[in-house]
Design a protein around this nucleic acid. Sequence first.
DNA 1: CAAGAGTTGGTAATGATTGTCATAATCTAT
DNA 2: ATAGATTATGACAATCATTACCAACTCTTG
Lengths: 155, 155
Amino acid sequence: MTASTRLQTTATQEVHLLGRFTPQRAIVLEALIEAEEEDGFVSAQSLHARLLSADLPVGLSTVYRTLSALAEAGRADVVRDMHGERLFRYRPGSDHRHYLICTECGVSLPLDAVAVEKWAAGIARTSGFTAVRHTVELTGICPDCGPSAGGSPQG
Amino acid sequence: MTASTRLQTTATQEVHLLGRFTPQRAIVLEALIEAEEEDGFVSAQSLHARLLSADLPVGLSTVYRTLSALAEAGRADVVRDMHGERLFRYRPGSDHRHYLICTECGVSLPLDAVAVEKWAAGIARTSGFTAVRHTVELTGICPDCGPSAGGSPQG
DNA sequence: CAAGAGTTGGTAATGATTGTCATAATCTAT
DNA sequence: ATAGATTATGACAATCATTACCAACTCTTG
Ligand SMILES: [Mn+2]
Ligand SMILES: [Mn+2]
Ligand SMILES: [Zn+2]
Ligand SMILES: [Zn+2]
């Protein structure tokens, strides 16, 4: 079983969470899973462009719809980059995660955010608000992109 | 000394942090301070509209420039609403703050986020990343907008 | 096959934000 | 105060992600 086949299998299974199975949804989900392993977060626009250049012409509308549905179903994390553009990342598990993202290269590091979850839960309990949700994102410059790593890291 | 005069005094002093003093910058800063006391966060668009209807026709470009400069100078907090629009809030102090914002009416509640600050500082220290910054926003439905306070609670 | 519900994708519309640049205002040095 | 250098303003156009629209298409069911 090739890596490509394994991806397709995963995608085929999970697409049903969004309703009817369609080739387009499978393609988008596959691409999102691939992107997670390679680049971390991806935008709808860049994912669409990637599909076009891979001769998998899925409509931009469908890419947006599928990614939004995945996020809605809790199968993708969503963050906003410095320009307000929405970035998506496939999430295998069921709990949401928080990330430290390099503003230079986009590499993302999943964080242990137990402390934040507890803090947010406490706020939700004591504030009087209901349906409390939270957005927690860390950004910075990763070691590879940092000052002491300019141009050629180890040569 | 009227409340209006007090606002103008504050604005006049702080405008200098942005460079040259101009009437437009003072107007925008005043409006931002007023908005903080009334509505909490405001968008550049709504602030601009408010100025127009108050016969203080400051250009939209200038509103954007001034609010961005204030945020850059650390005199305003910035969050993104559900649609990605940027919302600004004047910040008297020098430390940034985090808020719990009602998605229905927009009322905002400043939070004690010491736990989050420590957590974020720990990540910054142990991750290898530099220039680490964080975004932490809580959203929910405030007591006034909640289920037991809706249009006709008991009916 | 026929009807109905769901899906796609091209295109147009939306709407916030930014770029441009001629004009106007502010600051500084005389 | 005045001239000149510097900076700011604002009308307008451009950008660009996202959404709305809708006719054509694909299943499923009977
Ligand atoms: Mn969380
Ligand atoms: Mn903080
Ligand atoms: Zn990096
Ligand atoms: Zn409310």
